[in-house]
Measured scan of single mutants.
Amino acid sequence: PDDEWKERLREAEEKNNWKLFEELARKAGVSEEKIEEWKRRWS
Rank of each mutant, 00 (worst) to 15 (best):
P1D: 12
P1A: 11
P1Q: 12
P1V: 13
P1E: 12
P1N: 10
P1R: 10
P1C: 15
P1G: 11
P1T: 12
D2H: 09
D2K: 09
D2G: 11
D2I: 11
D2F: 13
D2A: 09
D2C: 15
D2S: 12
D2L: 10
D2M: 10
D3S: 11
D3E: 13
D3F: 11
D3L: 10
D3M: 09
D3K: 10
D3N: 10
D3R: 09
E4A: 10
E4L: 13
E4P: 06
E4N: 10
E4I: 13
E4V: 12
E4Y: 15
E4T: 10
E4M: 11
E4W: 15
W5S: 04
W5Y: 05
W5Q: 03
W5G: 02
W5M: 06
W5C: 14
W5K: 03
K6H: 11
K6E: 14
K6F: 14
K6C: 15
K6Q: 13
K6T: 13
K6M: 14
K6V: 13
K6W: 15
K6P: 07
E7F: 05
E7D: 11
E7R: 11
E7W: 08
E7N: 11
E7I: 09
E7T: 08
E7V: 10
R8T: 08
R8D: 04
R8M: 14
R8W: 13
R8Q: 11
R8P: 05
R8E: 07
R8F: 13
L9S: 03
L9N: 03
L9H: 04
L9M: 12
L9W: 11
L9R: 04
L9Q: 03
L9D: 04
L9E: 04
L9I: 07
L9T: 04
R10V: 06
R10T: 06
R10F: 07
R10Q: 10
R10G: 05
R10M: 10
R10A: 08
R10P: 03
E11F: 06
E11D: 12
E11I: 07
E11K: 06
E11A: 09
E11M: 08
E11T: 07
E11Q: 09
E11S: 07
E11W: 11
A12L: 10
A12V: 05
A12R: 02
A12D: 03
A12F: 11
A12P: 02
A12K: 04
E13G: 15
E13P: 04
E13S: 15
E13N: 10
E13D: 07
E13I: 15
E13C: 15
E13F: 15
E13A: 15
E13Q: 15
E13V: 15
E13R: 15
E13T: 13
E14L: 13
E14T: 09
E14Y: 12
E14D: 08
E14C: 15
E14R: 13
E14M: 14
E14F: 13
E14V: 10
E14A: 13
E14G: 08
E14S: 12
K15S: 14
K15W: 07
K15T: 14
K15P: 03
K15E: 11
K15A: 14
K15L: 12
K15D: 09
K15V: 08
K15G: 11
N16C: 15
N16P: 02
N16E: 06
N16A: 07
N16G: 14
N16R: 13
N16I: 06
N16W: 11
N17E: 07
N17P: 03
N17D: 13
N17Q: 08
N17W: 13
N17C: 15
N17V: 06
N17F: 13
N17H: 07
W18R: 01
W18D: 00
W18M: 04
W18A: 01
W18H: 01
W18Q: 01
W18C: 07
W18G: 01
W18K: 01
W18F: 04
W18Y: 03
K19N: 11
K19C: 15
K19F: 09
K19S: 11
K19M: 09
K19P: 12
K19E: 12
K19T: 12
K19V: 11
K19A: 14
K19Q: 11
K19D: 12
K19H: 11
L20M: 10
L20S: 05
L20W: 14
L20K: 06
L20V: 09
L20Q: 08
L20P: 02
F21T: 01
F21Y: 04
F21N: 00
F21M: 04
F21A: 03
F21E: 00
F21S: 00
F21P: 00
F21R: 01
F21H: 01
E22L: 12
E22K: 03
E22W: 12
E22I: 11
E22G: 02
E22V: 11
E22S: 05
E22T: 04
E23F: 12
E23H: 05
E23S: 07
E23R: 04
E23V: 05
E23L: 08
E23C: 15
E23Q: 08
E23Y: 13
E23I: 09
E23W: 14
E23K: 06
E23N: 05
L24D: 02
L24G: 02
L24H: 04
L24W: 15
L24I: 14
L24A: 08
L24Y: 11
L24S: 03
L24Q: 04
L24V: 08
L24T: 06
L24N: 03
A25F: 05
A25Q: 01
A25W: 06
A25S: 02
A25D: 00
A25L: 15
A25E: 00
A25G: 01
R26V: 02
R26M: 03
R26L: 04
R26N: 01
R26S: 02
R26W: 01
R26A: 02
R26H: 03
K27Q: 13
K27M: 14
K27C: 15
K27Y: 07
K27T: 06
K27F: 08
A28P: 00
A28W: 10
A28L: 13
A28F: 13
A28K: 05
A28H: 07
A28M: 13
A28V: 05
A28Q: 05
G29K: 02
G29Q: 02
G29D: 01
G29R: 01
G29T: 00
G29I: 00
G29Y: 01
G29A: 01
G29M: 02
G29N: 03
G29V: 00
G29L: 02
V30S: 01
V30P: 00
V30F: 15
V30G: 00
V30A: 04
V30Q: 02
V30L: 13
V30K: 01
V30Y: 15
S31V: 02
S31G: 04
S31T: 07
S31D: 05
S31Y: 01
S31A: 07
S31N: 05
E32P: 10
E32G: 03
E32H: 04
E32K: 07
E32Q: 08
E32Y: 04
E32M: 06
E32S: 06
E32I: 05
E33K: 08
E33C: 13
E33P: 03
E33I: 05
E33F: 05
E33D: 10
E33Y: 06
E33T: 07
E33V: 07
E33A: 12
K34C: 15
K34L: 14
K34W: 14
K34D: 13
K34Y: 07
K34R: 11
K34F: 12
K34Q: 15
K34V: 14
I35M: 03
I35D: 00
I35S: 00
I35C: 01
I35L: 08
I35T: 00
I35G: 00
I35K: 00
I35V: 02
I35P: 00
I35N: 00
E36P: 00
E36G: 04
E36V: 04
E36S: 07
E36A: 12
E37P: 00
E37Y: 07
E37G: 02
E37W: 08
E37V: 02
E37K: 03
E37S: 03
E37Q: 05
W38N: 01
W38G: 00
W38D: 01
W38E: 03
W38S: 01
W38C: 14
W38R: 01
W38F: 11
W38L: 08
W38V: 04
W38H: 04
K39D: 00
K39F: 09
K39G: 02
K39S: 02
K39P: 00
K39I: 09
K39L: 09
K39Y: 10
K39M: 07
K39H: 09
R40K: 12
R40E: 07
R40V: 07
R40S: 11
R40L: 10
R40D: 06
R40Y: 07
R40G: 07
R40M: 09
R40T: 09
R41V: 08
R41K: 12
R41S: 12
R41Y: 12
R41P: 01
R41L: 15
R41E: 12
W42Q: 02
W42C: 10
W42A: 02
W42V: 02
W42G: 02
W42R: 02
W42I: 03
W42S: 02
W42F: 13
W42L: 04
S43R: 14
S43I: 14
S43E: 10
S43K: 13
S43G: 14
S43Q: 14
S43F: 15
S43D: 10
